[in-house]
């Protein structure tokens, strides 16, 4: 027998946990499942400076823990390290199979599966994953104590994580395709002031090379078209995200780039199936906007459940 919930949230990032806080506070029996530990992308962000309510910088991990504790306090059940091995989301009652064993069901599912770091898709990239190439500075920064490393990207994540990596590395060279950074001016200024950070603008990586482990990154100067190999001990890639929406493919038509189109109330085309957070088609993807999406989805879900039961 499937265990019955009112609301099942898939993904325990800011959107999913905000939805869980609102749903649980409305006394809906709420389950949040996540394939990792709660926090989504926030948990590996070393520092969050623009989330309202925290006058001082807060570490992503602490913020993630606070979201989780709040959702738990109102009675939401959070199941971590769970793989969804089966799903049927099109009917009135939606079911999920967890880890090939447990069945759960609910009339409402809120998909808040977010996004994962984008890969470059370059030769050598998958070969050196975990052998010199990383997407997580908090996880792997300490491996590069006293080393010379490269960061690829020019947005907020790239610049802020580059700053974080200077705690460990001897030098951090940021490689960015454009001739100026897209990151917030405050971080860019800090990066230029940091003696450990070097900047290589108008360059794009083309391949990764090495025997066994990564030894160099091949870059192209976009102005002169000249290519060269830069010796490196490690490369961190922060070039944006791709939505995790494989699960929804069978139920809705995904928009360009794999994102999910919703109404203003976070409804998808399938009744009872909502979507919230970074997986949605929208212009800005921030912790604050994810939390807003989760809130709206949970409120809309309450209304849906009232009609559903009537």
């Amino acid at each position: 027998m499937a265990e019955r919930y009112d609301v099942i949230v898939i993904g325990a990032g800011p959107a999913g946990l905000a939805a869980a806080i609102y749903a649980a506070r409305a006394r809906l029996k709420t389950l949040v499942v996540d394939e990792s530990v709660p926090g989504g992308q926030v948990k590996t962000t070393h520092k969050v400076s623009n989330y309202p309510g925290f006058a001082e910088d807060v570490s992503g991990k602490e913020l993630a823990q606070a979201f989780t504790a709040q959702a738990t306090r109102f009675g939401a059940k959070i199941a971590k390290a769970i793989e969804i091995t089966g799903h049927e989301l099109s009917g009135k009652m939606k079911t999920l199979t967890l880890d090939e064993e447990d069945e759960v069901e609910a009339p409402v599912v809120i998909a808040a599966t977010g996004a994962k770091p984008r890969e470059l898709g370059l030769p050598g990239e998958s070969k050196f994953k975990g052998r010199g190439i990383s997407w997580c500075a908090t996880c792997d920064g300490a491996y590069f104590d006293g080393k010379d490393i490269h960061v690829i990207g020019g947005g907020n994540s790239a610049v802020e994580e580059a700053l974080f990596l200077t705690q460990f590395a001897k030098s951090v060279t940021i490689i960015h395709q454009f001739d100026e950074f897209q990151a917030e001016p405050a971080s860019v200024h800090e990066a230029y002031e940091n003696p450990k950070i070097k900047v290589l603008l108008s360059h794009e990586p083309r391949a990764f090379h090495g025997e066994g482990s990564l030894q160099s990154v091949e870059v192209e100067d976009l102005k002169t078209k000249e290519r060269k190999r830069l010796p490196t001990d490690g490369v961190f890639i922060f070039i944006g995200m791709v939505p995790r929406t494989d699960l929804l493919k069978g139920y809705i038509q995904l928009a360009q780039g794999g994102y999910v189109e919703t109404s203003e109330a976070m409804e998808t085309k399938v009744p009872g199936l909502f979507a919230a957070g970074d997986l949605r088609v929208k212009r800005f993807r921030q912790i604050t906007t994810a939390v807003a999406d989760g809130t709206i989805a949970a409120l809309a879900a309450q209304k849906y459940l009232k009609e559903y039961r009537a």
């Binding site: 530990v37 991990k61 908090t138 996880c139 300490a142």
Partner: peptide, 14 residues
Amino acid sequence: YSTECPPCEALAPK
């Protein structure tokens, strides 16, 4: 595994 590594925490139960 490392400390300060959420993906490591996530892997542990699996």
